[in-house]
Design a protein around this nucleic acid. Structure first.
Lengths: 153, 153
DNA sequence: TAAAGTCGTCAACATGGTTGTCGAATTCCA
DNA sequence: TGGAATTCGACAACCATGTTGACGACTTTA
């Protein structure tokens, strides 16, 4: 059997990514978080449990502080994050996840475990481990969390 | 060694996709196509050698005909596509790739072969074939060509 | 031939990215 | 210690891309 054409490799990788993210959000919606968009999950992950300022968030996501601020606006509006004044530095405003935001992150982590377990059941643990190892080799393991802007430019 | 946490799997898949697409566009830029954005490559692929109407393009990309029309505007503006009246149906306008558009597609195909060959050199042909086969298993092989809108919603 | 459907476009809007600017607050250093 | 440099968050203007809704022009169909 001939090798697959080269252009299939990126499409397959994206299809895998997309399948996992779509499954995650379908299950999140079922568990009470129908408003979480993929972009929000990435942003909340970047905010983390200890909170972050808009500038820090921008650096972590690879976007400008202004763009990060807009994302925070959106998260605040949906009840997943809130802003609080920093008592030590009056310029800063600390963005923190609300209990609802933390809940969605915890559920996401659990769902990702389930989804990976599905892959293991389907492909076998060795193949999944090999797939992860190979991708780590080819990508250097540096995770960039910005997605939307990168594609459209 | 413990298994990787579940959330790494999608990040690794996306990192692999992104690495390939970034490498493609770096090389495309070197070969005289610095203006091609990832989204344009997908759109041109969807237009194909025989051309398409804006409505068809929208269906293939999974977006509205209006959004497809805007993408065509952009491709036209950059010299990668052109619109022509359909002699058989005065409502329709056929979008066709210009020679420059066709050139960028041909170069993309060649570059993807080179990139896959790099993966084979690094990982071995068996591992790359296994990776492709596993991803085909988990995704059903249905390629969706819309990317940008899906993520941000 | 009249009604229904399709095609492309325009308009209005949402989202999310960019750069530039700015006042306020903090840090640095001579 | 006090002025200069830096940093933070916000505002504005702009671009790119998506959405719906509407509409005129043109088929297709009943």
């Amino acid at each position: 059997m001939a090798d697959a054409p080269g252009f299939e490799l990126p499409l397959l990788l994206f299809a895998g990514f997309r399948t996992l993210i779509d499954d995650l959000h379908a299950e999140l919606a079922r568990q009470g978080h129908p408003d979480v968009r993929p972009a929000f999950g990435f942003a909340m992950q970047a905010i983390g449990g200890r909170g972050a300022t808009a500038s820090e968030l921008g650096k972590r996501l690879g976007v400008s502080k202004q763009a990060a601020g807009k994302t925070v606006d959106r998260l605040e509006q949906l009840g997943y994050a809130e802003r609080a004044d920093d008592p030590d530095d009056a310029r800063r405003k600390l963005v923190r996840l609300t209990p609802r935001g933390i809940d969605s992150l915890a559920r996401s982590a659990a769902i990702f475990e389930t989804l990976r377990a599905n892959w293991v059941k389907e492909l076998g643990a060795d193949r999944v481990r090999a797939l992860e190892a190979d991708l780590r080799t080819m990508t250097g393991g540096g995770f960039r969390l910005d997605v939307a802007g990168w594609f459209a430019g």
